[in-house]
Write a protein that binds this DNA or RNA. Structure first.
Lengths: 229, 229
DNA sequence: GGTACGGTACTGGTATACAAGTGGCTATGG
DNA sequence: CCATAGCCACTTGTATACCAGTACCGTACC
């Protein structure tokens, strides 16, 4: 497990949740790893309570499996859940951007504009490591503009199943293309052009198609064995 | 707060979550009510720990608002969240039933068939109080058939915002119509007829249109005052 | 050598103790 | 009578103690 800095503003619970999430997505807590509430608590320098609450939450989304009195494990990558994550993102993102076309205010658009401008700036200056955070923030801002922030929170939890597979794939979509997609989406929202916006989202998501079988071949121990074989 | 029987199979945490949820949906814990972890814990006969974990979970979906060191409150009915719930249900249910048309196995269909048959039986015998539970189960089985069970779990949490408004409306859609809708949906899945299935879901959801303003007029104290007025 | 049994050191589930902060009530002084 | 200061009873947040159940390992006995 990798160290995560505790921000002064967050509670122990928020810190623990963030630290565990980041470690799972980055695969520093690899699929199948056994985790102990006590161990993580002492590693993070907090008590079991906040750690336990975080683990409970992740287990709700099947990111962690809890076997009472036996142990807890980071879930193996399960095609079932990855598909659910991809499905949810596809269905929601397209529906939400259409809503954003209808509902976005000037202020919403300005925030997105600032975000995209920053993406373009970092792209020009080859500081592409910053783009990952801005990317997530961009998509959140779309949900905010569509007045669907609660839905976004749920989306991001289940998306962990997909995110860690993406980490594992080490597949990198050219940042140029990502940022360009974002610029075009913003334009579509400005123009209230739902049809174009929807098509852009579909095209954007298609860039992240992952060859799961190839990864399974090189890291079979990370994957759940399907029952139907 | 109304008593909820503890099932012998569930943990204290599951019991607490279920009890609190049911009380919020039934409005026995009315919107705006102040709740205390200690109070609920002693009422349910468990300690603060499982109660606290449940409240934390509900606060994630904005069902409960926590003000540290001050108190926690059942959220007032907020049009914003109700709309998010309706939006989520509409978007997901239509997309999921299409998936169910593709993916449902014989076993899945048989379970739905049994459920619908039971609905029809209770309808014939005027035991319509049983239909509410079967209704929820019916929609869950559709998600199961579409291999989207995790998504269903998230759906049901956010739907609380809508469910309690429905309780408040005391609006009753004729059970005859509901059960008939379900029968037709099942047929569409059997026939793998996505288009019909989708239209049926839309029609079905339209039956639950609620006149929020009328309810707001008769119970203004349950509603959040909009900031844009 | 093999097997069965028991101790031990873990697990997560629950209960309780303590900490830090808030708000209201009361008592006291003007 | 009013205002203010301080105590007290509450809140949630966190840490810790205790419980029941599990797994594993070593030992003793066959």
């Amino acid at each position: 497990m990798k160290t995560v800095e505790k921000l002064p503003t967050e509670t122990a619970r928020e810190y623990a949740l963030r630290a565990i999430k980041e470690n799972i997505i980055s695969l520093d807590l690899a699929p199948g790893t056994g985790i102990s509430e006590n161990e993580i608590a002492s590693f993070l320098g907090v008590s079991r309570t906040p750690v336990r609450e975080s683990i409970q939450e992740l287990s709700k989304a099947s990111i962690i499996e809890i076997y009472p009195q036996k142990g807890s494990y980071v879930s193996l990558i399960d095609s079932q859940y990855v598909e659910e994550a991809v499905f949810l993102r596809t269905v929601l993102d397209t529906a939400v951007i259409e809503e954003a076309c209808d509902l976005a205010t000037e202020a919403d658009i300005q925030k997105i504009e600032d975000n995209v401008a920053l993406q373009e700036f970092y792209l020009q200056n080859y500081a592409t490591d910053k783009i990952y955070v801005l990317d997530n923030e961009f998509h959140r801002l779309i949900y905010v503009a569509a007045r669907k922030e609660t839905i976004h929170a749920m989306r991001s939890t289940i998306l962990i199943h997909f995110d860690r597979l993406r980490s594992l794939s080490m597949m990198t979509v050219k940042d140029t293309k990502i940022v360009n997609d974002h610029r075009l989406m913003l334009d579509a929202i400005k123009n209230k052009d739902k049809e174009t916006a929807k098509q852009l989202v579909e095209k954007h998501l298609n860039r992240y198609r992952i060859d799961e079988e190839a990864i399974r071949a090189s890291h079979p121990e990370y994957f759940k064995v399907s029952e139907n074989m």
